[in-house]
Design a protein around this nucleic acid. Sequence first.
DNA 1: CGTCGGGTTGATAACTTTCAAATTTCGTGG
DNA 2: CCACGAAATTTGAAAGTTATCAACCCGACG
Lengths: 246, 246
Amino acid sequence: MLKLVQDSPIARKLGAFIDLSPPDFALLRKLHERRRRFPVGVDIIHQGQSDREAYVLARGWACSYKLLPGGTRQIVDFQIPGDFLGLRSMLFRTADHNIEPVTEIEAHVVTKSDIEDTFSRSPRLATALLWAASRDEAMLVEHLINLGRRDALQRVAHYLLELGARLRLVGLGSKAGYDCPISQYLLADVLGLSAVHVNRVLRQLREQGLLTFRDGKVTFDDFAGLVALAEFDLSYLDQDGPLFRR
Amino acid sequence: MLKLVQDSPIARKLGAFIDLSPPDFALLRKLHERRRRFPVGVDIIHQGQSDREAYVLARGWACSYKLLPGGTRQIVDFQIPGDFLGLRSMLFRTADHNIEPVTEIEAHVVTKSDIEDTFSRSPRLATALLWAASRDEAMLVEHLINLGRRDALQRVAHYLLELGARLRLVGLGSKAGYDCPISQYLLADVLGLSAVHVNRVLRQLREQGLLTFRDGKVTFDDFAGLVALAEFDLSYLDQDGPLFRR
DNA sequence: CGTCGGGTTGATAACTTTCAAATTTCGTGG
DNA sequence: CCACGAAATTTGAAAGTTATCAACCCGACG
């Protein structure tokens, strides 16, 4: 069972920041008690809602998004195993965005008191949580830059590379590629492009021998070339191994 | 002196979230001890740097940005009095972005131990800090949506409205308008547009009687019309008065 | 004065969206 | 096993938005 916890996505991720101690694992194990399953397509958190519960994604993919009056939507990001869902809405009066499973997902419930417990019992783990939140924000910033200053080709390449790096961190991908259950429509909504254009860009990347996205799999055909094209520098992910050691 | 602290931008801002108690003011007053001045145009934090110090902006405007290999840059956001500078880079191995004063600024130094102190001595104030951080992230998300799904006209209108709302919160603006020391070039870099296009859009907004941005002043000529055009809904700023009361 | 940064404007080029339609994929029921 | 319909992908053509390039203007300042 302890081994199970060590292999969980959240432990892998936090373990990249601090060396987790046995008591830390115990706290994490407690998180694993309340596991809940959610079907595809039904919001698990939605704008305006004010219940105070967050989750750690254990299996499957989700996405956080906001709907605009015009009917369009912007996906803020996809969440993969080990990511938090709705941590910010726990602190706000009302949730300011929606979260929806992209595949069937399983998630662990995190309550406000869990967080408070963690903060009082394990400052180290608390630091790791803050680091995780900071890292989420850094990804948000990079995403902002993607939308603001990169053209569609770079944008697609950069985002798929980032997803790859995040998945590697939790053991779900490699430099060869990864399973990616998102449609071109979803990719369009996260990248601020139209689905049609995403399709064209994917073709271009494929024809240039850089990457193939087909049948729910992203394959990096030329990792180095892709990194160069996207000007991808993963230092913003801050994942070069534990910063604080025991 | 106590009065001075209560009127400080940071106290005004946090006061919108919790009713601050006298001990809270005392802690905030401590923050006000180390005040430092920085000239225009010289980075106070830059990418890759790893000293661990953050600031609370007391006077003037700053901006956080990232440079891209091509020579372009994306401004992540402008910071106004009461905002934190570099809180995230304190937690990261190395800063992942730059911060540069837009005007001459004065800022209060915040160290890691200040934060730890606050967390242990005043859980209420700590909550307020987390709220402030969450609010920053919510603004980042809204900014992302701006870049991803709004055209240039809405984008400019929305951002200038947001700045107005933020400035009102710290007593530096009204629904009539505010002083805004940023050039059209800077506005272009924060909105992911070219300076030329920003100029055209500003002209359009002016000619439609919506807003005037001239001589360092933003004037809302038709606040309601502007809100409608930008589909501006400030609930994401979560500033409808203290959530937690004493 | 002369220069320099910021603002303004016009013309052209590039990129991306929109609209429309064909094709493929895939789950489901016959 | 095949047929069918819905959803996702693919492609072309036209329209729209924004960037780029190139001037010109203006006030601040040495």
